[in-house]
Design a protein around this nucleic acid. Sequence first.
DNA 1: CAGGCCTACGGTGTCTGCGA
DNA 2: TCGCAGACACCGTAGGCCTG
Length: 351
Amino acid sequence: MPQRWKMNRAGLLNFWYYDDAEFVLEDGRLILRGANSSGKSVTMQSFIPLVLDGDKRPWRLDPFGSRDRRIEYYLLLDGEDGHNERTAYLYLEFQDADRERYLTIGIGLRGRRNVAGVNFWGFVITDNRRINKDFKLYRSEHGSGEETKIPLTRNELAARIGEGGTVVTEQGEYERLVNKHLFGYADENSYGELLDLLIQLRSPKLSKDFKPTTIYEILTGALPTLQEDELRPLEEVLGEMDEIADHLAELEMHRQEADKLQKAYQTYNEALLLSASREVLFRHKERHKLAVELDAIKGKIASSKALITKAEHEQNEFLKEERSIEGRISTLAQHEAISTEDELQRVKEQI
DNA sequence: CAGGCCTACGGTGTCTGCGA
DNA sequence: TCGCAGACACCGTAGGCCTG
């Protein structure tokens, strides 16, 4: 953390049974020890929320959450210890050890018996000045040798703080001031919610009624209500999830239908393939058979060609022989025997 | 006459008691 | 057990009165 404030001192002046008290914390921690009802809770559990936001309503003051004791009681008390008029101061000093810086927040309260309401003012000291070190919240008057502490009025305090801090008169303004200087929440509601959580967690119910349901109720009550802006992204995501789920269901349905179709189509394709395969096998056998026949025919053609060649050769031989015989016939025709023959024939005819 | 004080009033938050 | 209405106290603001 760039700047971390640790509670360093807590002080009370004229509040409840305290005249002027100071609690010094060690490394942000404080242990209070005392008998039951000795005021431990009032001292710290009532005091700290009150100084953090200045809310004086009874249930904020009482660690048990009752409304029996109003702020007037803590200021003026009852019975013998009662005061008619009292000005109180409560403050918390924070330290940033790394930077050696101090920040003090506090409230002033003025109450008068028989006058309704309590005056309130809140302050922060931001210039490193420290209460009871650099200045006090009261004026000292010495009457008859005894020191009397007269708490500063609001104006006196404002004058003393001067430029080194701020004094406000409204509770809401004080709450914003403390948030600004001490916590730095960008959103004022967040600071309010932090204080609500603090109030819930201080509840003594935690130890008195130690049941899981009680703890659950306290923690649930302490949780801030989610704003619409914060819920919107979740709402959108849930909406998208619903849409996606619907889409998924639809796709799943489509996929199942597609599976059925694909199965049927597969069967159909297999049947087609089987049929085509049978045709191929049949054609293959047919082709083989024809090839064998072709070879046989080619063999016959070859032997026929040889016969043709041989026949042609023989034809040529016969033609030659024919021509030779025809030559011999021609020669013989011109022979005298033939003409004698012919004379003989003529004689026979004459005869 | 300016600033402080007081009072009234509307709004808000919390608690409590009552009835379903 | 839950929701609702009423009570209560406080906050913030406005306006009038008081006082140094």
